[in-house]
């Protein structure tokens, strides 16, 4: 006669299963990624800058094309996806199968990392799509190219940096989402606090936005950049995980 056996289970196994589950279940994430990036390409098609020159007898028009906007779109996509993952409906999806808060949070964070990698990779490639499209759509005129990344090394560094920045913004979104789940007031409080403090500080000369931009986006030393992003991401995610551990589910 079959005897019912209690199974001991490791968090690692559950997390693995949950990541697979999320990959199959949240295909909406990829749909929005593709749409976002296509919109980004569309946005960038009219060029991200142009210059005209009238020298004696010359009328020179130079139009610049770069996939930067697509990358920025993808970064915000990472932020919003993470934010949405903290909503009750998503957390409860986990509770339809085996989970506890820790494994649910870890699997969400790892899943966010996976999609950050995909987001980063596709966003960089989409730059090429943009440029090929411009070549096809606006055939006239010569194409000039400014400093292709010299070698695979540079390309990889670029990829790593994009992935890390997307992952960092997803940690910001995840923390913001968790705070909102913890107390709905944050939905208003967070933006007010953020913009309020920035403008207030701006009066006294401290340009927070600028500083943030320089701190990450203009950090020239790769190692330092990696450390900065990783430390901030871990910090934000730990704080978010701390909050999520106290949230009840299916009130």
């Amino acid at each position: 006669m079959w005897t019912m056996s209690l199974t001991e289970v490791q968090t690692v196994d559950v997390v693995k299963k949950q990541i697979g589950y999320k990959w199959r279940a949240y295909t909406g994430v990829f749909m929005s990624l593709v749409i976002i990036q296509l919109l980004g390409v569309l946005f960038s098609l009219n060029g991200s800058g142009s210059g005209g020159y009238g020298r004696t007898g010359y009328d020179i028009m130079v139009q610049y094309f770069s996939g930067d906007i697509i990358i920025v779109f993808t970064i915000f996509w990472g932020f919003l996806t993470a934010l949405l993952f903290t909503t009750r409906a998503y957390r409860e999806d986990d509770f339809s199968f085996i989970t506890n808060r820790t494994s649910s949070t870890i699997s969400t964070i790892l899943f966010l990392f996976v999609i950050s990698v995909i987001g980063g990779f596709t966003s960089l490639l989409s730059g090429y799509l943009l440029k090929v499209l411009t070549y096809i759509l606006f055939p006239e005129g010569k194409t000039l190219l400014i400093s292709n990344p010299e070698g695979p090394g540079v390309w990889i560094m670029g990829l790593v940096s994009v992935v890390l920045i997307i992952f960092m913004f997803s940690s910001i979104g995840y923390l913001a989402g968790m705070m909102i789940q913890w107390n709905k007031l944050f939905l208003i409080l967070l933006p007010v606090l953020l913009f309020g403090s920035m403008t207030w500080l701006a009066q006294s000369g401290v340009m927070v936005g600028e500083y943030f931009y320089q701190f990450y986006f203009q950090e020239k030393n790769f190692i330092l950049y990696v450390m900065k992003t990783i430390v901030s991401t871990t910090g934000l995610y730990t704080f978010a995980a701390f909050i999520s551990n106290h949230l009840e589910v299916k009130k």
Partner: peptide, 30 residues
Amino acid sequence: IVQLRYRMFQTEFPFEQFTGDKDQRWGQSV
């Protein structure tokens, strides 16, 4: 007048963040 049209493909900022002189990225000189 000599009409000249150019398309300038710029590499994305992540590729240049750690190598190229980024400050001149948008600068163009004729």
